[in-house]
Amino acid sequence: MSLLVFGQSGQVARELAALAPEAAFLGRDRADLTDPAACVAALRASGARAVINAAAYTAVDRAESEPDIAGLVNGQTPGALARACADLGIPFVHISTDYVFDGSGSTPWRPGDPVAPLGVYGRSKAAGEAAVRAAGGQHVILRTSWVFSAHGTNFVKTMLRLGAERSHLRVVADQTGGPTPATEIAAALLRITEALRAGAAGGTYHYAGAPATSWACFARETFRQAGLSVTVEDIASEAYPTPARRPLNSRLDMASTETDFGLTAPDWRQGLARVLAALKGI
Rank of each mutant, 00 (worst) to 15 (best):
V5L: 08
F6I: 10
G7N: 05
G7H: 08
G10R: 03
G10K: 04
G10H: 07
E15N: 11
A17F: 06
A31R: 02
D32V: 09
T34M: 13
C39G: 06
S46N: 14
I52W: 09
A55S: 07
Y57E: 02
A59R: 09
V60S: 10
D61F: 11
D61Q: 11
E64A: 03
E64K: 00
D68H: 13
G71I: 06
V73N: 12
Q76W: 07
P78L: 10
P78R: 02
G79P: 00
G79K: 05
C85N: 12
H94P: 07
I95C: 12
D98K: 05
Y99L: 13
V100M: 10
F101T: 00
S106V: 13
S106R: 14
T107Q: 05
R110T: 12
D113I: 13
V115I: 11
V115M: 09
P117T: 07
P117D: 07
Y121N: 00
G122P: 04
R123P: 08
R123W: 05
S124G: 12
E129Q: 14
G136Q: 11
Q138D: 11
L142F: 09
S149P: 05
G152D: 08
T153C: 12
T158N: 13
A164M: 10
E165L: 14
R166E: 15
R166D: 13
R170G: 07
V172Y: 05
Q175I: 03
Q175D: 01
G177A: 07
P179H: 11
P179K: 07
A182K: 06
E184H: 03
E184N: 00
I185A: 09
A186P: 08
A187I: 02
T193N: 01
L196I: 11
A200K: 11
A200H: 13
A208D: 00
A208C: 10
T213W: 01
W215D: 06
A216V: 03
A219S: 15
F223W: 07
F223V: 01
R224Y: 04
A226V: 08
L228R: 03
D234W: 13
A236L: 14
A239D: 14
P241Y: 13
R245K: 15
R245E: 15
P247T: 01
N249G: 00
R251P: 03
L252S: 05
M254G: 08
D260R: 06
G262Q: 13
P266N: 00
P266H: 03
L272M: 09
V275Y: 04
L276K: 02
